[in-house]
Design a protein around this nucleic acid. Structure first.
Lengths: 195, 195
DNA sequence: ACCTGAACACCGTTCAAGT
DNA sequence: ACCTGAACACCGTTCAAGT
């Protein structure tokens, strides 16, 4: 399963010359745009290649198939969110429990809202079986950062934090997703905006 | 949105003669089988029609498109689960809160596990935008049954129960889904089995 | 009233040929 | 080293023709 992800769903080759670097960047950018404008349902390799005026063949030189393209974008999006959470965790060791939880929730929610478009666009991709595997893999990273932080909270002592961490993550993810899907980001943006 | 669902995602016509009733039943059955054997990714109208030896044209006489076929099966599955929950709610009015919660959880979890195959097979279909709309619509029915029951609990009085009901639902759904996706039903079946 | 299946437009992916 | 685009196999959906 992890093998499949690595062997067939990842970029085929890293660009080593400037021309191809620009091509890859253009394809990547086009992927997001097509996703945003047409949705996953009408997300087509041809459409992606058309946008920067590149041949389909070229696209397939870098991504072995449609999914790998989708997942490259998904992975980037998730990485941004997770890095925000990890940073919040790192910066709040040894603080009171309440401060910790507030910091993590704020980091997660505002990272998600900063990328509201991408979040919504990628939602279906993330729901496919292989997409969920990717999400699970990255979510684990976030959870372990949270565990490490929580263990330094004065209120915690030597209690096991795995389950509470899982609950906190599920709650954050579920609530944020619900709000994004409901399509009401403007209001929340005021509360959680990064400024 | 609801209009779209009704106009284009629902069965085209009800069978009024016995021959077509059999045809529809055969298509429905084939849909489940193809879903189970090939997954959503390779779920094809041609494959569905092939199974009972029916023409693709016939399939499209009853379902206007692929999604409507998928959703018909999804709706049936969800209805079974929800009816189980509604029944549990109806039968536990005026009981202690703990009894109520235990009854609902048992009803939900065992209904899901009784249909473990279908649950897993339909997971992707339920994650598509329109699938989620359907899920949301049916989940609402379950929540209102739970609210009605909870209000008769001696511990509750006139407190608002909407939020707790939402949390209970999310928790049940999330946990059950996680277990089903992890593919470990045998163990849980012993605990929650319907016998 | 119901069914058939060839036909159409379109999609993912490949590969021989080019620079 | 990188790119092209015609070609292939396959898919969703339609519709004229049949019983």
């Amino acid at each position: 399963m992890g093998t499949v992800l690595q062997s067939s769903l990842q970029p085929r080759e890293k660009p080593i010359q400037t021309r191809s670097a620009r091509t890859v960047e253009a394809i990547f950018e086009a992927t997001i745009q097509v996703l945003l404008r047409h949705g996953v349902e009408q997300f087509t390799t041809t459409r992606v290649a058309e946008r920067p005026g590149v041949s389909v063949g070229t696209l397939y030189q870098y991504y072995p198939n449609k999914q790998s393209l989708l997942f490259a974008v998904l992975e980037r999006h998730l990485n941004l969110v997770i890095r925000a959470v990890e940073r919040a965790c790192r910066e709040n060791h040894h603080r009171p429990l309440e401060t910790m939880v507030a910091a993590v929730v704020h980091a997660y929610v505002s990272a998600k809202l900063d990328q509201a478009d991408a979040s919504v666009a990628l939602h279906s991709a993330a729901s496919e079986p292989d997409g969920e595997a990717l999400v699970a893999r990255l979510a684990k990273r976030a959870r372990s950062a949270m565990s490490t932080m929580l263990k330094t909270a004065p209120e915690i002592g030597s209690q096991d934090v795995d389950f509470p961490v899982l609950m906190l993550m599920s709650a954050m993810a579920g609530a944020t997703r619900a709000v994004l899907m409901a399509g009401a980001p403007p209001l929340w943006s005021e509360v959680y905006g990064s400024t």
